[in-house]
């Protein structure tokens, strides 16, 4: 019994890293992924902050899952998530001010990161506390790993450094465009293509991930509408 439980917890954790990687497979949380990955260190900072919020909000929502009425669940989730985000923001400001400086406005914007609301809706509202926290940890680690990968590629190619350590200085001139916005879109596109190639899917995700988003119903309505009118 204990053995089985361990195995399933490991499954909840590991799915977030590869099979259901929130960034590369589910394509959630695109805004921070593109915005803060100009440096590998920023990617780590953002990843850790988001992971903390994910674990805490998943735990809180899972605890309250039988108390929150269905009708007001989205506002309730948003309030809880915003609370944890503000808490993390204050802690970061007090104890890691350099991270606060480099993440700027993207730190409070974790509130509207669809990974967090998505996991609350998809997983935490239906599962017990421990699995929910493990799910949050897995998703957070997957998010961090994907951002670290992107941050490393962009920093090495675009600035010739990695975590601020000069790597290619004097050998190759850095390709500046990789740390500018266009480079962000480009590297992200290539990574999504690569991950779908490696995972053996015939085609990459058609669109941004709506699967995990509680608003997906409206979203697909909007898309259908467009197709009819167009």
């Amino acid at each position: 019994m204990a053995e089985k439980k361990k195995v399933s917890l490991w499954k909840e954790f590991s799915k977030g890293i590869i099979k259901e990687n929130p960034v590369l497979c589910l394509v959630l949380g695109t805004c921070p992924t593109l915005a803060v990955t100009t440096q590998a260190s920023n990617a780590i900072g953002m990843g850790i902050a988001a992971t903390l919020v994910l674990i805490c909000s998943n735990a809180a929502i899972s605890l309250l899952r039988n108390i929150i009425p269905d009708k007001v669940r989205i506002p309730a989730y948003i309030t809880i998530i915003a609370g944890f985000v503000t808490m993390v923001q204050m802690l970061v400001k007090a104890y890691a001010p350099s991270i606060d400086e480099s993440l700027g406005i993207y730190l409070p914007l974790i509130v509207v990161n669809c990974i967090i609301l998505g996991r609350a809706e998809m997983f935490a509202s239906k599962n017990r506390v421990i699995p929910s926290m493990v799910d949050g940890l897995g998703m957070g680690v997957g998010f961090t790993a994907a951002m670290l990968l992107m941050g490393s590629i962009r920093e090495i190619l675009g600035a010739g450094t990695w975590f601020g350590i000069p790597l290619t200085s004097g050998v190759v001139d850095p390709i500046l465009i990789f740390i500018l916005p266009p480079g962000g879109f480009f590297v992200f596109g290539m990574l999504v293509a690569l991950s779908s190639k490696l995972s053996g899917k015939k085609k990459a995700a058609e669109d941004v991930g709506c699967a995990g988003c509680p608003l997906s119903e409206n979203c697909s309505k909007v898309k259908k509408e467009g197709e009819c009118n167009g």
Binding site: F185, F186, F188, G189, M190, A193, L194, K203, A205, D207
Partner: peptide, 22 residues
């Protein structure tokens, strides 16, 4: 190309549009 169909090519086009805004 097959692997680029869907989201990847959309992102690459977004990158080009973003270049023009630079």
């Amino acid at each position: 190309p097959n692997s680029l169909k869907g989201l990847p090519i959309t992102l690459v086009s977004a990158s080009l549009v973003s270049v023009s805004f630079l």
